[in-house]
Design a protein around this nucleic acid. Structure first.
Lengths: 210, 210
DNA sequence: CAGTATTATGACCACCTGGTCACATCTGGT
DNA sequence: ACCAGATGTGACCAGGTGGTCATAATACTG
């Protein structure tokens, strides 16, 4: 998938290539992204790129893997959550998401493009990696919370996860893309305001779920 | 924007052109959609297409206008809502959305593509037309509901609309695209099951907002 | 029917793509 | 210094794009 030659490259060179590729895929999505642009941005020859990755798809898959790893790391670095109640854990994941959008905006754009773009090879599998992680993460939390009586048990876990997913996704999308924030102006506010806004959303959700 | 020649065309011919264009834009998005494909699908010459529309952008704008009109009509045809409580009105809009996805799946795909595609000319304005309609529709409903004490007033209208928007959008997307339904399997269930699921989501939201 | 207006055609253009491959350059070991 | 392996290059290829325009065909009116 990724060649030995790429592994052997200097870290600077690897970084330059990945950065150029993430920018292009993040801006234009898979199909429209141009390898000619990527090699120009990375200051390498096109033949070299084909030595590092078998083809466009292989490069894209590598980028997406990096994305998934970064997401997982971001959530893990959010800290030990065992002592928190369910909604605080949800909140912490949201903030991990905001940090991700701040540090890796282009990787986030790659992900958004994959959501609805036709003809991304293996798209559903790619997204399943993110969404599986999401449900593997929230599933047990949700079940534990129901077992502890923290949230009601008459709403199925899948529905709870769906709602959390929908709200957090939209909050992150609204933070990254102002036209998706339904007037909340998330991307233009300081972190305190965002925090208040998220607390409000979670409070409504909590009140509905207790 | 759209020529007299196009207006003068037979309804069958107009329909064939629009259908071919919606399919192509809905599948590939603006940038990747090919006019060569569209004219092939519509059995017209490429020169003719340029007589009907100034360029690709003009054709796309016309398609998107049709989309917005169809959305508005769908919501209006949902029926007189004045006698319903707020959450029943929300529910009715959701079902208008489901009917839209059923009757016009490709127009819905066009919209989804525009959400995150770079370099769609006037993208934010296009989306603003949909989202403005949404907030113009829900805004007064929400304010009325707050005035009637049906929902709490300490949560700003924008936040309520945001949550409704996030949940309904995700439900519709999950209905249209199974990988987005967080395990609810909306697209594979009968309307009764979907109705139950939506009622559950709305009940949680209602409980959180009363 | 002739003239005019309207509609339709498709070859062509400059530009772009992902992928190929003959050739070139660099590095490390003997 | 020589050789093998590793790395790098960019012109080329077939295929595709949006847009143009000289020409052709059709429809309408007097």
């Amino acid at each position: 998938m990724v060649s030995k030659t790429f592994i052997n490259l200097s870290e600077d060179k690897k970084k330059a290539i990945l950065q150029s590729a993430v920018q292009e895929f993040g801006r234009l999505g898979y199909q429209k992204a141009s390898l000619n642009s990527i090699v120009r941005g990375a200051s390498i020859s096109k033949g070299s790129l084909y030595q590092y990755f078998q083809n466009k798809e292989a490069l894209f898959n590598y980028i997406f893997e990096q994305f998934v790893l970064l997401v997982k790391r971001g959530v893990q670095e959010a800290g030990d959550t065992a002592a928190l109640d369910f909604f605080s854990q949800v909140r912490q994941v949201f903030w991990a998401g905001i940090r991700f959008v701040d540090y890796f905006p282009e990787y986030f754009q790659v992900y958004l493009k994959v959501l609805f773009e036709a003809d991304v090879p293996g798209r559903e599998n790619l997204l399943a990696k993110v969404h599986l992680f999401s449900s593997e993460y929230f599933g047990p939390l949700c079940r534990d919370a129901q077992a502890r009586g923290e949230i009601r048990s008459d709403i199925p876990v899948e529905t709870v996860i769906f709602m959390i997913d929908a709200l957090i996704s939209r909050l992150l999308q609204g933070y990254a893309l102002s036209y998706l924030d339904s007037g909340l102006r998330l991307g233009q506010r300081d972190k305190k305001d965002i925090s208040d806004q998220v607390d409000m959303v979670l409070e409504v959700l909590k009140k509905g779920l207790v």
